[in-house]
Design a protein around this nucleic acid. Structure first.
Lengths: 335, 335
DNA sequence: ATGAAAGCGCTAACAG
DNA sequence: CTGTTAGCGCTTTCAT
């Protein structure tokens, strides 16, 4: 059996209340008693049982984090931000991966509640209406970090995607590109954030008086960008496209790999721009011009917001929007 | 106040024991009572408090995972394996990142113990002797996953690095390479696992009757591989090297980027092999020939081992060694 | 300043 | 099959 507060009290010759007081220094304790207690603690290598403590204080110091897949680099960065800031406030995080399953997300949410998590951050790629309902009817600190959807009803930390896309488009235009193609997700999926980006694209194309060329892919993974290569190549030739702006870095990397394998030179023959600044973006050759999504900050800001409300500090607002940054690299050139 | 077992009992008109019994179905309960309880639970949206439950059962269903940095891809893969298997047995994981600080690792270890974690997996890149002592004197299920060091005194799950390096070397030899260079960590660091790999390299070089050429770098990150480019290039020319075997994929990728930027063609001018099969390895062009470290499995096997001992199943052995696999890609060619 | 005692929400004998 | 009761290890009144 592990050593408990009773053992310490006995050895120190005081009551358990006194021991508790020195552990938490919640009330004055005579120097003499304190010394004895401290000594006993040391002797016994006593470590308080946080579970028992939680039960009475109702503070678990646990934040639940439900993610899509910790194996995704951007997710890992978000978790990094959450964890590092949480740590500063003495909070631990419980991690669960849903792999994009809506029911699993809800199951974890409930599970985390039973574990008395004080707040929950959901890093999701899907739109989970059932979960939305559930959260709205339950009082728990909650933040929705969704990379693709806007979630109007709930506290979110998000990015200014529209502005970022506009910035990238204007940059491409500055590079004298006129025929710019946009490669994005499958058309029929109703991705609210992607809509903002498409709007930005369309707007800039309209500004420069050119017709938009949008190509839809059914996935946002690298291989999908690669596989779409032949069709995109055809469209490029037919429409005299000089720059391709991809809605995700993964797509851009896949596409560049296709170009590499088919002797199309980036950026000499075609400029390619991405979105996200995933870690490969700066490693791949040519390095990818893209827009940096500040994942770490996304996580950090989220947990800070939860912690603030937990502590009772005034919170600024329910929706936090973070800026993004244009990263100019080799894959786009002036023509 | 949250709804408790008492509320359910009252509403259902039974005792709390009966409620407890239907929740856990630990003992037979009359259909009638069960129905009433279930109904009350539903009515009240009751969710048992796991903290209270843990306190009495002494089961937290929590596994602590201390990692170096969840932002590292390989670490994330390990955690993925841990989490996914843990989930199958109803275990949650608490994640803490030490960022390579030995004291932080110990602090987390203690913290996780107070949270009543039933087992702890340490995914570390450093050698932490103090922690070794600590763990040996404490009875807690523990596994050390160290990528660079052998940890003889503790249960570990590790890889057969010696064999893997030999396999890679023999493959290179099969490709008719005779003058093979090995690029690795700084010489004075005492990396026990790296030593195995160097031994394997030396042995094969001896077999083919050629002198070893080992180059030491002070970091294992991509930029380090890149920065070492000029010197490595010089050595290659002087020694007529035709293949470079890097102790880490990161180094290989950095080096290939240097080659790309300096118009040295891989694999036409030089073959490059890596170690690890990090995610970029298959994405980078040319794709990197490497040895696959099964990170996911490493995590999965670790937690499974802990869970087994927790459940009381017989455990096979204290040291588990996983095999690695040669991944032939474009960066190495026959000469 | 200190101890006794109540109780956090739950499980597990124990008695019926 | 069911209710009563005694804790789990700790914090926190409430006396003293």
């Amino acid at each position: 059996m592990a050593v408990t507060i009773k053992d310490v009290a006995k050895l120190a010759g005081v009551s358990i209340s006194t021991v508790s007081r020195v552990i938490n220094d919640s009330k004055p304790v005579s120097p003499e008693a304190r010394r004895k207690v401290l000594h006993a603690i040391d002797e016994l290598q006593y470590e308080p049982n946080e579970v028992a403590r939680s039960l009475v204080t109702k503070k678990s110091n646990l934040i639940g984090v439900i993610v899509d897949d910790i194996g995704n680099h951007y997710v890992a960065q978000i978790v990094r931000g959450i964890e590092e800031i949480g740590r500063m406030y003495n909070y631990d995080i419980i991690l669960s991966s849903s792999y994009g399953n809506a029911d699993t997300e809800i199951k974890f949410l409930q599970l985390l509640k039973t574990k008395q998590a004080e707040g929950i951050i959901l890093v999701s790629e899907i739109m989970n209406d059932k979960l939305l309902d559930y959260v709205k009817n339950t009082k728990i600190e909650f933040i929705y970090l969704n990379r693709y959807y806007k979630v109007p009803e709930l506290p979110t930390v998000s990015l200014n995607n529209r502005e970022a896309s506009t910035t990238m488009m204007r940059y491409l235009v500055d590079l004298n590109h006129k025929n710019i193609m946009y490669v994005t997700q499958k058309k029929d999926i109703d991705l609210t954030i992607e809509k903002c980006k498409i709007d930005a694209y369309n707007e800039v194309m309209k500004e420069i008086g050119n017709k938009p060329t949008i190509y839809h892919i059914d996935s946002h993974e690298i291989y999908a960008g690669y596989n779409a290569g032949p069709e995109i190549e055809k469209i490029i030739k037919e429409n005299n496209i000089t720059a391709v702006f991809c809605s995700q870095d993964e797509l851009a990397i896949g596409l560049m790999s296709y170009f590499y394998d088919n002797d199309i030179k980036v950026p000499d023959d075609i400029s390619v721009a991405g979105y996200g600044d995933i870690n490969v973006a700066s490693i791949y050759r040519p390095t990818l011009t893209t827009v940096k999504e500040p994942y770490y900050d996304l996580g950090a800001v989220s947990i800070r917001k939860i912690l603030k409300t937990l502590i009772g500090e005034p919170i600024d607002e329910d929706k936090i929007v973070l800026p993004m940054r244009l990263i100019k690299r080799e894959s786009c050139r002036k023509i």
